[in-house]
Design a protein around this nucleic acid. Structure first.
Lengths: 64, 64
DNA sequence: ACAATATGCAATATATAGTTTACATATTGC
DNA sequence: GCAATATGTAAACTATATATTGCATATTGT
């Protein structure tokens, strides 16, 4: 399913998908697909995204 | 680096690498390599491991 | 109206996660 | 001593994450 917490955390920092992508070293499409829930990122990418956004894994990727 | 928190969480439940592997649907070698810090698992696998062990992503995979 | 920015989507290519098989060692119980 | 269990490691294979390119639309500022 969609990752709206990721989209929201990015919005609060006023970052575009492209800016986040560049910050973590992937392409814009990869960020877009993670937000769209269309795939299964690697742990290291999740960690890089969280650190860039000032969040933890549980904040963004843990589903209760 | 090694993931000793994973090894420890598994030990508390007295599960072998093989039992954990079967519970989450991967092979024993995959669990072994994650514990050895030799690769970068997918998010879905990390979540499955945490749920099986009664932990969260931050408990097992978040590095401060 | 037009340029610039942000996003969605899709096809093809490449890197790497995860499988399979196999062999090695250590430990424990009989 | 021997069988069974747990773990480490490695090569070759397959599935999939991620890159690259390209085109589409919506939005915003001038």
């Amino acid at each position: 399913m969609k990752n709206l917490r990721l989209k929201s955390a990015r919005a609060i920092l006023d970052m575009s998908q492209e800016q986040l992508a560049e910050a973590v070293g992937v392409t814009r499409q990869t960020i877009g697909m993670i937000e769209a829930g269309k795939f299964n990122p690697s742990l290291q990418l999740c960690i890089a995204i969280c650190k860039t956004l000032g969040k933890t894994l549980d904040d963004i990727f843990w589903e209760v």
